Amino acid sequence: MSGTSVDGVDGALVEFPLDSSVAAGTALPRTLAFRSRPFPAPLRGQLQALQAPGHDELGRAALAANALADLYAGVVGDLLEAAGTAASDVSAIGAHGQTVRHRPELGYTIQLLSPARLAELTGIAVVADLRSADVAAGGQGAPLAPAFHATVFAHPRLRRAIVNLGGIANVSLLEASEVFDGRLDTTGSVPAAPVLGFDTGPANTLLDLWCERHTGQAFDLDGKWAAGGRVLDGLLESLLDEPYFRIAPPKSTGRDLFDARWLERKLAESGAGGAEPRDVQATLAELTAITVAEPCRQFAAREVWVCGGGARNAHLMGRLAALLPGVSLADTGRLGIDPQAVESMAFAWLAHRHLAGLPGNLPSVTGAGGPRLLGARWPAGGNPIRR
């Protein structure tokens, strides 16, 4: 997985039990290894630049896709080495790629990757292009993780919210599993009480952008810089006055909306262009906390479990806790899954669904016309992995 934070690649080696539950897509996964690699600076810069139109865009995108496949292959090699596993023992790589455009309202979403190159480098089949079938069926193509969250995180008696604080924040709202079967069946039909989920708005993408611009650091460690600032009420009001926040789900978003230009416009509109940078950082953190906490509160979640890089932002976690009094809030590590690994595990699960011939989307989340088999498969190549 490489997400909208554009900071690197996360990979998980995941095992599914070989029994009848696999055919139904209900087998619970076990993580054998988790590894990450940061983006080399030139690749990171190119991926960020490709978020907007530019010169020789198609050629640059193709080269970036090749470089990304090479980096993915390196992470695969790290995983195999860590787990003492041979490439021949792996059924498939579920590969997300790097989103550079997400415009489901126009009928497309683009995740850069060269799946054929990745299959050749690793000697492992690759399942990729995991969003476009949902978009073709009229869906948002995102978020896809709620189906996985329902499978592994639903509680028998309590309503839970799973919050992913990546570049973009999203929530999965899970009814108690005694109320419904929270796992997808063999037809991929929607549970009796549908799982709900959507992108709430920006998280690390704007926090990281502002922090790097003003401190030279790639991210705000533990949220300490934001914690030293004060929330600017006028700016916060302007940030919250964004039509996206008023759209009813299904909905998804990305850097196509929440980028530097959006932030600069809001700073100008609110008269905060000359504000103390750490106060702007504190206000951006408050924006994320408010837009995440509100749906959890409306859903009356008893427990909120956080994953993604933002789970390590102590200031942001503290603000969420303050906005959700009486609600248990912690990261998914307490449920046995590293919060950094959840999303890459979700794409392993989606590849697992694909190989079983089963749908991976939830129409109640994405708005698609029905369950769809997600992704396409590239067969294993003939070369051993190159590092």
Score class of each variant (00 low, 15 high):
Y72D: 08
L68R: 12
L71M: 13
D56P: 02
D70G: 05
A49H: 02
E57Q: 14
V75K: 01
Q51V: 02
R60N: 00
A69V: 03
P42E: 11
A49G: 08
G45T: 04
V76A: 13
S36P: 05
A62P: 06
R60S: 01
A62D: 07
D78I: 06
R44I: 10
P29F: 06
G54K: 05
V76G: 08
T31L: 13
R60M: 00
L68H: 13
A69F: 01
E57H: 15
F39S: 03
A33I: 09
D70L: 11
L50C: 10
A49Q: 04
S20D: 14
A62Q: 10
F39Q: 01
L32D: 08
R37K: 10
S20W: 15
F34I: 05
A73M: 05
L47C: 11
L68M: 14
S20V: 15
R30H: 14
A23P: 11
R60I: 00
A62I: 04
G77S: 10
Q48K: 12
A61V: 03
P38H: 12
P40S: 11
A24H: 15
A49P: 05
L58Y: 01
A64R: 01
P40M: 12
G77M: 05
T26Q: 14
P53K: 03
A33Y: 08
A41L: 10
A62L: 12
V22A: 15
Q51M: 04
L63V: 05
L28G: 14
A64K: 01
F34M: 10
D56W: 02
L58C: 01
R60T: 01
A73D: 05
A27I: 10
V22W: 07
L71D: 13
L80K: 12
L79I: 06
A61W: 07
V75H: 00
Q51S: 06
P53A: 05
R35G: 03
A24P: 02
S20G: 13
G45L: 09
T26N: 08
D19S: 13
G25I: 13
Q51F: 00
L71H: 14
T31E: 12
F34H: 11
T31N: 09
A33W: 08
D19N: 15
Q46G: 06
Q48T: 10
A24F: 12
D78N: 09
A41R: 06
A64P: 11
P38N: 12
G59L: 04
V75G: 02
N66M: 00
A23S: 14
E57I: 01
A65C: 03
L32C: 14
G59C: 04
Q51C: 04
D19K: 15
G77I: 02
G74K: 11
G59M: 01
L28D: 15
A33N: 03
L47P: 11
A52G: 09
H55D: 14
P53R: 02
L58N: 03
A64N: 07
S36A: 09
G54L: 05
T26R: 15
D78H: 09
L50Q: 08
A52P: 03
S36C: 08
S20I: 12
P53S: 08
